[in-house]
Every structure is written in structure tokens, then in C-alpha cells.
Design a protein around this nucleic acid. Structure first.
Ligand SMILES: [Zn+2]
Ligand SMILES: [Zn+2]
Ligand SMILES: [Zn+2]
Ligand SMILES: [Zn+2]
Lengths: 129, 129
DNA sequence: GCTTGACTCTGTAGTAACTACAGGGTTTAG
DNA sequence: CTAAACCCTGTAGTTACTACAGAGTCAAGC
């Protein structure tokens, strides 16, 4: 499998695959005599893992740690679990922050009433101490 | 007021203030004969606005748009309101995405049981199609 | 008068996580 | 035999800053 096929099957841009290799997330594949990258199914699975982790919001560093665990022949649940729990804390913090933003935005929006005021008080509120 | 004082009063690093000026978010202040920036209270308020917007999750582009509205002598509520509503959509999308992440992470965590398995099924699940 | 420290200036480079070329080589179909 | 489609490396752009490097300026203390 060369890079274009892997990209197609994984629905991931070619450049991103090369990028993951460069930063050490995806193991280097063999090369064909012409220098083209040649991937096997194991590579596909590694890429899959990376992409899934991305949708879970893991940072590249966290993915690297998970990869380190996954590379062991008997990946311990305790390690995986603690990574998941740690990241859950990150996600929940972001959720809280966003919730605060949402609340504040709703409150501000209410001050605009139906948008028929001519001198918006929100601007003043944001600028005043 | 020179930059250090403004930075102190606004609890914002000096470099960030210069950065906001460079990208055109903060109006250029006057300069003292020695070339130092000299701010007045209006500048402090502009910076306040920018910092508040930041805690609300606005992008710099959105802040620029809000600044454009704020510069008018009678900022129309309708304009502000539509910006708020637009951004509320952004925030809510991020909230949904994060909620999905949280759910998925909780589901995965459960698979690790109490972390006493020796061969974590989560790794396999993430790698398999 | 001089030094020391705190302040300021400009400009550049680094961060995360990619994306988008530029400028080349290779393979394959018609 | 040539044109399209693929592949290669390396560099620059993105967002929203942060962190210097290298230089100038100012006030206080001795
Ligand atoms: Zn497990
Ligand atoms: Zn995390
Ligand atoms: Zn309003
Ligand atoms: Zn927004």
C-alpha cells in the first residue's frame, strides 16, 4: 500500500500522514526501490488509532504516550485508564469554560433586547471596569 | 500611562499589548519624545474590551468586527446582537463536540474495568476498523 | 560622574497541529 | 512519447500568542 491508498482508506490527507511520521507519531514505513513509502496493515491500524485519538481531543503528546503503551505486547489497562481519566479532566475543564462563555453570551444577548436599541449597552459593559 | 503600567492595571503581559497593536486590534498610542508608548484611559478601555472578548472565546477576527461596531458613536444593538448570536453558535458547536468526546471517553474508560486487565481492549478498539 | 537595575524599543523565532505549496522525480495510460 | 497522476523533500502559512536577542533610556544610589 502506498501513501495515497492509505490516505484514501483512512480518509486522511497524504500530508497529514507524512506529518505524523515526521513528528514520530506514525512508525516509518519501508521504502520501495524508487523511494516511495510502502505501508502494511499494521501501519493502517496505527494511523487509525491516531485519528480516533484526534476525534477524542487528545493532544499529540497524549497520543504519543498512548502509542507508547500500545507498543507493549500486553498493554496494561491501568495505564490506558489513567490516560483516559487524565484527558477526561482536560475535556471537562474545557466544557466548563465553554459553558461559562455560553452563559455570559446569553446574558449579554439579553441586554441587547430585541436589537432595537440605538446605543448598545453591551459595548460599554465590556469596556468598563 | 506607559506600557508597563497599562499591563499591570489590565493584568495582561506587555508583549500581548504590543501584539494587539501590531495586528490592528488596539489603536496606536501616542509616543513620548523618547519613543515610549503613552496610553490614556480610552486605550485602557479598548484593551479591556479585547481581554473580555477573549474570555468569551471570540476569535481575533470577531473582536475586530466588534471593535468596528464599537467605534461608531452609536453602536447598534442589532449588530452587536448578531455577532453574539453568531458566536453563540460557534461556542455551542464546540460544546457539542466536547460532550461527544466526554461520552466516548467515559465509554472507553468503562471497558478498562478497574484497570486490572492485562491486555487492554481499548487499544484494539481504537486500532480496529 | 558613574554604575546598576528597571524599564522600553524593534524584530525574530518558537508553540500546536496541521495545511499548502514549490520544485522536483516516477509511473502508467493512451 | 507525452500527459496525467502519483510520489518525494523542504519550506512557509495558519491562530493567538510567548519568549527572547540586542539595543536604547531613565532614575536612584554612591
Ligand atoms: Zn483497558
Ligand atoms: Zn488531554
Ligand atoms: Zn446591544
Ligand atoms: Zn465565534
Amino acid at each position: 500500500m502506498q501513501i495515497g491508498q492509505l490516505a484514501n482508506r483512512s480518509e486522511c490527507p497524504v500530508e497529514t500522514i507524512r506529518y505524523y511520521e515526521k513528528i514520530g507519531l506514525l512508525p516509518e514505513p519501508d521504502r520501495l526501490p524508487n523511494g516511495y513509502r510502502s505501508y502494511n496493515d499494521q501501519h493502517r491500524k496505527w494511523l487509525q488509532l491516531i485519528l480516533r485519538c484526534r476525534t477524542l481531543g487528545f493532544t499529540q503528546n497524549e497520543v504519543k504516550r498512548l502509542s507508547g503503551i500500545a507498543k507493549q505486547d500486553q498493554p496494561a489497562c491501568a495505564d490506558v485508564r489513567s490516560l483516559l481519566v487524565e484527558h477526561l479532566v482536560d475535556v471537562r475543564k474545557k466544557l466548563r469554560d465553554l459553558k461559562h462563555m455560553e452563559d455570559a453570551l446569553i446574558r449579554l444577548k439579553a441586554k441587547c433586547q430585541n436589537g432595537n436599541l440605538n446605543d448598545c449597552p453591551v459595548i460599554d459593559e465590556l469596556m468598563d471596569s
